[in-house]
Amino acid sequence: MSSNKQILSLLCNKHRLLYNCNHPMVTTHCNYKKHSTKVTANPKVDWNQAVTEAEKVVGHPTSFLNPRWLLNDEIANVAVHLQKLVGSNHPLITTAKSLFNNENSNMQTWGLIVLLLSKAASQTDQFNAEEDARAGVLHRQKELAEITEMIRIGHLVHRGLVNFCKKNHRLEPAELNDMTFGNKIALLSGDYLLGTSCMKLACIKNHSLLELMSCALKDLSESAFIGRRDSQENPLPAIPPEDRTNYAVNEWTHQNYLGSGSFLAKSCKGTLILAGHDEFMQEQAHEFGKHLALAWQANLDLVPFIAQDRNTPFNLNCAPVMYHIEYDPSILMEIDKGIETVENVNFGNVFDIVIRGPGVELTKELQQKHSQKAIDILTSTFKESEARTALTNIITSIGF
């Protein structure tokens, strides 16, 4: 255990996390006490403040970086091996850094969303005996929140596998070793997270939830294979039909619903199934999770273009690019240079073209539309509470 604590301390220092009770990522290392400070709606709340206040509402931090996970022997061993990849170009390092850099990221807050929605919906009378008095949620709902975090992270880790056999240039021996070793760690650690989450899901012993989350996993897997791809399986925009009406919205929504919206939506629905809520409430929870995930993705798609930095990498399937293709498909002449590998695309040129078109403003409208729909569901379906307010603050904090 002492060696594991040293690993945790090293990780926290390496990424400049505050290893004490004041940081939302690591508060369970200490005796976390629920604050009595009332959470109020604030249209100007920033992301970190919104997440910190939300964790106070549920009584404990829900981040994957909770030391309960970091001090686990398997996770600690992965952390040791990750140190060997520092300085390499393996995508697993980027994923690991994203776990520690939580600003405006949805990588570590999906479990928190599930718990907040659980508390906002409250419990039905027949389930009160199972309620966690401190958090105001069922023990099984807390388990589902942890499962949601584990599946999400496991999926992202698996996406970091590098198909280096298809790279269009010869790898140096040192780089080949890094890629091979990184792939092994990504495969094994992702398998561990997904395998453990499936086992915990089965232990909940709820057939409806198991079927629901199985469908969510199917959607996650399908998202990695739909649409055009380069040799590294990086996504490329679909060729628009002759009638391009609603091309951008339809393509983007389909891709991102499978890639993230379905999983968060079904997790939100699942937590209400566990509490015995009726089908109407379950469907409202599903719609809330879907719109929140899509609003989040639209916001992430905007980041490189709002930053006005043409050197910031971006996904060619992001909403601003998709909207520009609908507006002027001639941009595909540059994008299609990446059919073999997206490394052949001049992203600076694509950026300059998109920034001069309507894509950025239309993406802002898309993000605002999904954010507003999520808020409307909250206010019309769930009673006023600190949990509902915390969810509203999180939604308003992700917009530009």
Rank of each mutant, 00 (worst) to 15 (best):
S3W: 10
T40G: 04
N48H: 07
T52M: 01
E55Q: 06
P61Y: 00
L65T: 09
N66S: 01
H81E: 15
T94D: 14
S98F: 06
S98W: 09
F100V: 09
L112Y: 00
I113H: 08
L116F: 08
N128W: 05
I147Q: 02
T148D: 03
I153W: 04
I153T: 06
H155P: 03
H155K: 08
V157E: 02
V162Q: 02
C165N: 12
K167H: 12
R170Y: 03
L171M: 14
K184Y: 08
K200T: 05
N206F: 09
H207C: 07
L209M: 12
M213R: 04
I226L: 06
R228D: 11
D230N: 11
P235E: 14
N246V: 01
Y247N: 00
Y257Q: 12
F263Y: 15
I273P: 04
A275E: 10
D278T: 06
E279A: 15
M281T: 13
A285E: 11
A295K: 03
A298C: 15
L302S: 02
L302F: 07
T312L: 15
N315Y: 10
L316W: 09
D328F: 00
I331N: 01
E334D: 12
I335T: 04
V342C: 08
V345I: 15
G348C: 14
F351P: 06
Q367W: 03
Q372S: 14
T381K: 11
K383T: 11
E384L: 11
E386T: 08
T389D: 08
N393D: 10
I398K: 05
